[in-house]
Simulated assay, not measured.
Amino acid sequence: MIRALVLFAAVPLAACRDQGSVLDNAGDVPPAEMVTAPIQDWGMLRHAIGRTPADSGVLTKGPIVTDLNALLGPDAIAYRALIEQRGGPLARAGDMLVTVTPGGDHAGYLVVDPAQLALEAGFRRNGAWVVKRTHSSDIVRPPAVEALLKD
């Protein structure tokens, strides 16, 4: 009977053998302190209007960093790199702020609603759009984002 238990315990472990370590991508997850911080004044984002995300630092040291990391989870690092490398200048679209990349396989966008403290982040992965939005927000996508999503 003990041999049977040992055999049943060993079979699932053997099935997991060449699947890689669970911690192989642990470096891709933002540090905990970057996803749990006090709410900051998003009104200061107006100083980033007309500047690219890379130039303004809005994705690395601005007031939305913690919320963006929490929203995107393990996708945050790759998303920030995409938007910093390819994102256009932050522009006002009504009450929203938006940056979009050129279209194609490596497209992405960010919509910020400072009044709601809400974000919508979108990026293409394997030819399909991945869109993440602050829970319970009612962000209206600006025309530039709608056009990018149709690309």
Rank of each mutant, 00 (worst) to 15 (best):
G87N: 08
G127H: 08
G50E: 05
T99L: 15
D24A: 08
A48T: 11
N126I: 01
L72A: 14
G50K: 06
T101Q: 05
M34C: 01
Q85G: 15
R92L: 14
P102N: 11
V140C: 01
G103T: 04
N25Q: 06
V140A: 09
S56N: 06
R124M: 12
V140L: 07
N126P: 07
V65L: 10
P31A: 09
A118F: 04
G88A: 10
L110K: 14
R125Y: 05
G27W: 07
H106F: 11
V35G: 04
D113R: 08
G122S: 03
A78M: 14
I77S: 14
T134R: 06
M96W: 10
D105Y: 10
P114E: 06
A115T: 03
A121F: 00
R46N: 06
P63S: 09
K61V: 13
G73N: 11
G87H: 10
R80H: 10
D55P: 09
G62V: 02
E120A: 07
P38T: 00
D55E: 14
A76Y: 11
Q40C: 02
A26P: 04
H106A: 10
G122N: 03
D28C: 00
N69F: 05
P74L: 14
L119A: 11
H47F: 10
L97H: 12
Y109A: 03
A70L: 13
A115E: 02
G104E: 00
G88F: 08
V98C: 07
K132C: 01
A107D: 01
T101R: 10
V130L: 00
R46A: 07
D67S: 14
I39A: 05
Q85I: 14
R125P: 09
I77A: 15
I39C: 01
D95Q: 13
L117G: 02
D95C: 08
A26W: 08
A128G: 02
P53E: 00
F123P: 05
Q85T: 15
G43Q: 02
L72G: 09
H47D: 04
T52R: 15
R46C: 05
L90C: 12
D28Y: 06
D41M: 05
D95S: 13
I39T: 05
T66C: 15
S137D: 02
A118W: 03
I64H: 06
G108A: 13
D75C: 10
G127I: 03
G43M: 08
P102K: 15
Q116S: 04
D24Y: 02
G50V: 02
N69S: 10
D138C: 00
Q116F: 00
P74N: 12
A70N: 12
R86K: 15
G122I: 01
I77V: 15
A128K: 11
G62R: 11
G57F: 11
P102Q: 12
E84S: 15
I64V: 13
G73C: 12
I39S: 02
R133V: 01
R125D: 01
D41S: 08
R133F: 02
L110H: 12
R124E: 10
D75L: 11
P30K: 00
T60L: 00
V100H: 04
R51H: 14
I77R: 15
E120S: 08
A37H: 07
I83P: 15
R124W: 05
S136N: 12
D67W: 11
D105E: 09
E84M: 14
L110D: 09
A93G: 13
L45P: 06
A76T: 09
V29N: 03
I83Q: 13
R80N: 10
R125N: 03
D75I: 09
A121L: 00
